[in-house]
């Protein structure tokens, strides 16, 4: 196996709460292999977005890495200064966000923002950059790019805006694309088109993609592997097919059942309780209070293990919470 493009090693993140650091992501070990699409799934507050933002050095103020290591294209990111991060961002690792209305600048045309992305990294003439921007707009499936080039973000539909943002993110042909819920704000028909576009570009450009979503259906149809996060830690990582056919962690099972459509008139599945705030994470297994079958060992904190079935798992009782 070739070297991972992004590698989290026992990585942890925390927020400054004055007197101490409150952990937000703990003991994260995950490798992003070149050319794969890895789905990162979790509910709000699971730490999936913060993990993604750390790949670009874009953590919010007061949040910072507390321990472990995060390697980006083989380099330890803790050694990066502002200059190094600027080289990484856009050229090596690019990101697209949920809401293209807030991540594109409303005061500049779409085209000029793509040109800016090129000229931030390369000493290119404005004319040549413009040509490349137009080509990129065409590549992401925007019809009549010459006209869209001069459009302001508010003049485009949600789907077109998201395509324009993808064009800006990919124009420097980055090795890794981090996609943080890029289709959540879109209608399903638009979502389907955007997903198809990203998969096509991923193959065309040989990119690696980290796709973050709370929608298991999206990930099931898109990712090669899936990593599931709960309350700041990974609980299960597995090949997509295996994860959906034979989930091992009770949280993964609960999540899949909650999202699955049942026959008309049947009750809906759910996981009892709610996602705990970081300040109220249990000492032991963080999922135990919501688990259908916790035992006394679950008062200990489970470590990530590598079961024979492949992937990795954080649970004392794999595969135990049987679907009733």
């Amino acid at each position: 196996m070739s070297a991972p493009v992004i590698e989290f090693k026992n990585f942890s993140l925390g927020r400054d709460i004055g007197t101490s650091w409150e952990p937000l992501v703990t003991d994260m070990t995950l490798q992003l292999q070149p050319g794969e699409i890895l789905g990162l799934v979790g509910e709000s507050g699971s730490g999936k977005s913060l993990s993604a933002l750390s790949c670009l050095g874009l953590l919010p103020a007061k949040v910072r890495p507390l321990g472990g290591q995060l390697n980006i294209l083989g380099r330890d990111s803790s050694t990066f200064g502002d200059e190094e991060w600027r080289e990484v961002r856009g050229a090596q690792v690019s990101m697209i966000f949920q809401d293209p209305m807030t991540s594109l600048d409303p005061c500049f045309t779409v085209g000029s923002q793509i040109v800016e992305a090129i000229r931030a990294h390369e000493d290119t003439s404005a004319k040549e950059a413009q040509g490349r921007a137009l080509e990129m707009l065409r590549l992401v499936g925007i019809t009549d790019p010459e006209q869209r080039f001069g459009a302001f973000p508010h003049e485009l539909s949600g789907g077109l805006r998201q395509r324009a943002m993808i064009a800006a993110a990919l124009v420097m042909k980055p090795t890794v694309l981090v996609a943080d819920e890029p289709t959540t704000a879109l209608d399903v028909t638009t979502q389907a088109a955007i997903i198809e576009q990203v998969v096509q570009l991923q193959q065309q450009l040989g990119m690696t993609v980290l796709w973050i979503s709370h929608d298991l259906g999206v990930v099931a149809n898109l990712a090669d592997r899936v990593a599931v996060m709960y309350a700041g830690e990974l609980v299960e990582v597995a090949d997509t097919k295996r994860l959906f056919a034979d989930p091992q962690h009770p949280y993964t099972m609960g999540l899949i059942n909650s999202a699955r459509v049942r026959s008309a008139g049947e009750p809906f599945d759910f996981i009892s309780g709610s996602v705990p705030e970081p300040s109220t994470w249990p000492e032991g297994c963080r999922f135990a209070p919501r688990c259908s079958r916790p035992t006394s060992v679950c008062q200990e904190h489970p470590a990530m293990t590598q079961p024979d079935s492949g992937g990795s798992l954080r649970c004392f009782h794999p595969g135990m919470a049987v679907v009733s």
């Binding site: 509910e43 709370h214 609960g254 599945d269 996602v275």
Partner: peptide, 8 residues
């Protein structure tokens, strides 16, 4: 709502 809460 979060996916796991919707059913309730």
């Amino acid at each position: 709502l979060d996916v796991s809460m919707r059913g309730q």
